[in-house]
Design a binder for these strands. Sequence first.
DNA 1: TATTGTTATACTCTATAACTATA
DNA 2: TATAGTTATAGAGTATAACAATA
Lengths: 164, 164
Amino acid sequence: MTSILPAEDTAAVRLQATSAVVDRDEAELASRLRLAVTRLHRRLRQQADGGLTPSQASALAGVELLGSPTLGALAVRESVQPPSMTRIVGALEEMGHVTRVVDSSDRRVVRITITPAGEAVLRHIRSLKNAFLADRLHGLDPADRAALDDLAALLERLVDGDES
Amino acid sequence: MTSILPAEDTAAVRLQATSAVVDRDEAELASRLRLAVTRLHRRLRQQADGGLTPSQASALAGVELLGSPTLGALAVRESVQPPSMTRIVGALEEMGHVTRVVDSSDRRVVRITITPAGEAVLRHIRSLKNAFLADRLHGLDPADRAALDDLAALLERLVDGDES
DNA sequence: TATTGTTATACTCTATAACTATA
DNA sequence: TATAGTTATAGAGTATAACAATA
């Protein structure tokens, strides 16, 4: 088993970096990440793990994480417009994975709550071993998995915004 | 400036890992990556850097990387079906970023070649400093950027498949 | 017959605009 | 008037099926 990480050391390059070089490198890195994410998304799109599309799975995880968010708050987290979230939540509700409850103190507001069935689906998704990515990751040594943990954390922070 | 990478060390967890735990961790990691990529893709979708959609930019980069690939080979790399690639390439051709040339030895085959204008667009995209991701990455210290370079390489390998 | 790519058509996801209900 | 969410409609991206050209 070989390491999934490239062997080359970039320290020498960094030592001679000027500010302009740093800016250029950052822009190039951003471009690489963007292209890789675009292609990976297409691969992931082709499978509906646990019967959910990627968007539905992401929204359901968001409902769990945020804890009965309003539809609007969920739309913000998922970077979609409210009408799009109405549709996604409608599909999840039809499958019995969430409930939509009108807020008693402000009846314009709808709160989305995950159901036990929804929790079960999330557990199922998180345990899938034969999905595209799980297959790619299978059998990595601990060092590579640690790097991947970092990568996942990084991607999550990049999406959520960097308030630190 | 703080490090973009998480501080916690996962080594302790790994040391006590049994095979079953490793499998479960891999599945969970795959799930995290999938959800993060889904949401990040939606953020990236909202901007058309350099006048290209993410799909067009990815295909154009693929043409440059593969070096005048056939339409079919490009479709495989981009994980889309041939009819989809016909459309993407058609758009790129209309913009003058690629040319479609019938192969002389097998006239069923179309070779896609990047034009000087296409190369210029790729350079432009790679130098954008105010795109969503570039903005997120701006100001990282060299150590973090080095880590990010590795993570980008890892992400690219995950998409391309792991033939090592 | 098999293969490469295109055309025709339909589906999914998301967006904007207009609307309803509530504040 | 302003806000939260929904409905109506349209656009982008991709897929499958059927087809044309070539091998």
